[in-house]
Design a protein around this nucleic acid. Sequence first.
RNA 1: GCCCUGGUGGUGGAAUGGUAGACACGAGGGACUUAAAAUCCCUUGGACCGCAAAGUCCGUGCGGGUUCGAUUCCCGCCCGGGGCACCA
Length: 903
Amino acid sequence: MEYNFAQIEKKWQAYWAEHHTFQAQTDPAKPKYYVLDMFPYPSGAGLHVGHPLGYIASDIYSRYKRLKGFNVLHPMGYDAFGLPAEQYAIQTGQHPAKTTDQNIARYRQQMDRIGFSYDWSREVRTCDPAYYKWTQWAFLEMFNHWYNPETDKAEPIDTLIDKFQAEGRWDGLSEKEQSDLLMQYRIAYLGETSVNWCPQLGTVLANDEVKEGYSVRGGFPVEQKKMKQWQLRVSAYAERLLAGLDQLDWTDSLKEMQRNWIGKSQGAEMVFHVFNGDQEYEMTIFTTRADTIFGVTFMVLAPESDWVEKLTTPEQQEAVEAYLLQAKKKTERERIAETRKVTGVFTGSYAVNPLTGEKVPVWISEYVLAGYGTGAIMAVPAHDSRDYVFAKTFNLPIVPLIEGCDISESSFDAKEGIMCNSGFLTGMTVKEAIPAAIDYIEAHGLGRRKINYRLRDAIFSRQRYWGEPFPIYYKNGIPQAMPMECLPLELPEVDKFLPTETGEPPLARAQDWTYEGWPIETSTMPGFAGSSAYYLRYMDPHNDTALVSREADEYWRDVDLYIGGTEHATGHLIYSRFWNKFLYDCGYVCEQEPFKKLINQGMIQGQSKFVYRIKNTNTFVSYGLKDQYDTTEIHVDVNIVDGDRLDTEAFRRWMPDFATAEFILEDGQYICGSAIEKMSKSMFNVVNPDNVCERYGADTLRMYEMFLGPLEQSKPWDTKGIDGVHRFLRRFWKLFFDRDTFCVSDEKATPAELKALHKLIGKAQDDIEHFSFNTTVSAFMIAVGELSDLNCNKREILEPLLVVLSPFAPHIAEELWQMLGHAESISFASYPAYNAAYTVEDTVKYPVQFNGKLRFLLELPKSLGREEVEAAVRADANTGKYLQGATIRKVIVVPGKIINIVC
RNA sequence: GCCCUGGUGGUGGAAUGGUAGACACGAGGGACUUAAAAUCCCUUGGACCGCAAAGUCCGUGCGGGUUCGAUUCCCGCCCGGGGCACCA
């Protein structure tokens, strides 16, 4: 009987759906295990073979854990709000909800074909009002809470009002003043800030949505603009987000990325007296190098700093204004392009060094950022490279503070050496001087210890249509939370998805977008809003009274294994952790960290193929001969290339332009060039998993994707290698058949057969636990090879073999399992026990050393104890093989070490 | 510039201190077949030596070091991939 994968796979996918095989129930009697994939944004292009890599891995692990007796929660859903559907809507007028539904249907179809064990009854979509009710709810909770630095957690805003009342700062304020005051403390707040504004997208973007001055989605230029926006006070959680990383089982590189993003730096705030003519001010700056205070030769302000106005003298007024104007006109893009190009202007004012009493000039420069520290710095050109370049450009003095350092070409930034020219710090090492300087500053009231974070608050408004509306209305211009009973606040219909003529967001087009007659906020929430707590919603997806019930949360708790791409390191994975910690503070969830273990699957790249057209002709020359002509390289669809041979007929049919193509062949074939690139439609290198399933079956696709290489590693897709895996499955199938008849005997297994089986069980178990799925597949191939050599068709061997294989190739396993006479599908909690007795590796090598010299490796059975090893050594001396009849006085055996022999 | 990764046959990769190249692809040879597909068997890191059996030397980016022994650990370079980048 042939291995008819198409029929088998269809049958079992239907069976699992019909029997709700993978539906998870809360079951306190069983240990839980929560396996989560990062849910996809359903794009119009559908899935390519790269997308399911992580899903296959998580599915294998889920199925394995079920076989090990765990109650596994393995859900899937869609991150369905987002820009592409909206951009498409603007172009076509098609409602984004409709496009999104269609794309989701396609995604579902493609995923179903691969045979995933998702519990689809728990599916969530972020654009579903029943779902985004809870996104809006969380936002309101954040609006109604503040971060209390004393208890180091979020608390209801009422406790802050009580505090203000007790301090006499509340009563007597107008309603507007009260609102403004609280706004400075709310976790979700409306505040004026410099934002990333993208004119082409007509919206602001978060820092992680911008790369090198361009929007991540769309690639449009982004500029800085001051705007009033909703923000989340993520910065309040900076320390907890940093500290929490230590307990997580994530890769070091990912944790490091988050640490850098949070960017903790310890230092001091110091007060400088500054003078604009007769006017005196106290200006605070932040530094991590308090020890270099004696080398301060000037001060620098950010152009956007409030100090600029106060410190510009009348004489310098014109120059400063000109500088500010030109700095403002620059886009973020230009600023980056001009990195390290030094610009600046003198304010005319002077500051006094609090330790030396020396007067130093105050400058303005773009290299100081308004958003970090206090937007003002003390410049120590000898020991900071940026200050150094600035000082050189504007001819400011440079005073070295470390003995013997060379500052003729560049600054000496390293925190090492002995201090000099530094008053009471002279003679100390830098490492001693830093705390000593801060102690001194604190003792003399000149400043204090201070920790700064690079992490900024998350800008939460988007001037777009396709997102969650804010449940906020403006009563006399004062923002008010809508009552929870009004949720979900559904997205209104609009006539167009574009901003209004007056530049307001699309929601301003909605008819009667008001609450009790007051206007409702017209921004919507960003993409990360809906993905920040979806893992909690899966625990209890149909609950209408809570995001997640206490019972469900206390059972499922957190995600045990999270698999997804590394591109979310500084976005989703920070926001989710923040969101979860906030809910934890409020008592809604019982775990501080949402994702215990995280694996980043690598990308599967595409293998692009090229043909070479001789310029101004329709003649194509084969790869090996292309250098003899003047050619243009053209991407060609990988699906009409076999290996590197082009199917020239298919090529002529591929595009009308090529219908009359002529070819210059080598050895009668047209050979294509190739390159490894990102898999994408525009490179014509996309391989669709549907086609692979069609030709080889889902089981082959699943195993092949794992066989390709280590999960975390990026690797190119190469359809050619898939035959090996497919052949393996056919050989596996054949173990159960004698020619055409199903033939499995009840005979006792031989030791050799048992050894092959148990070697596999041990190896597979070990590899799966370490997510080394590529070596697991190899182990299957070896085991099946050994068993076919032994002509083994015994139930005692084949039945456990099916169970071990089933997480990888579930369809074929189920089919054969049924043929063995089982009425039910392969049951949970049936992973065969590994019996080491069958798999003893025969020998171990002991290095043997005597008279101080290592002489040979002694091969002995692994199972030997210490005395037996000694006896073996003495026996060897008797036979004279290595020790040549030496008289042995003492044998020292240390497990894992060299055997020492004293002769 | 800083941080994190990785570098092994024609290719994807295996081996975390003990026989480098498992497993698979590709390639070459053979069996079966009228033929093709499918299947099965053999060879396959390089260089030498030999009729053969067998044997020798070199080899994990480069240069050092530790060790009886290094792809693996340490130090210094070179190259690729990813992240951050005026963060004071």
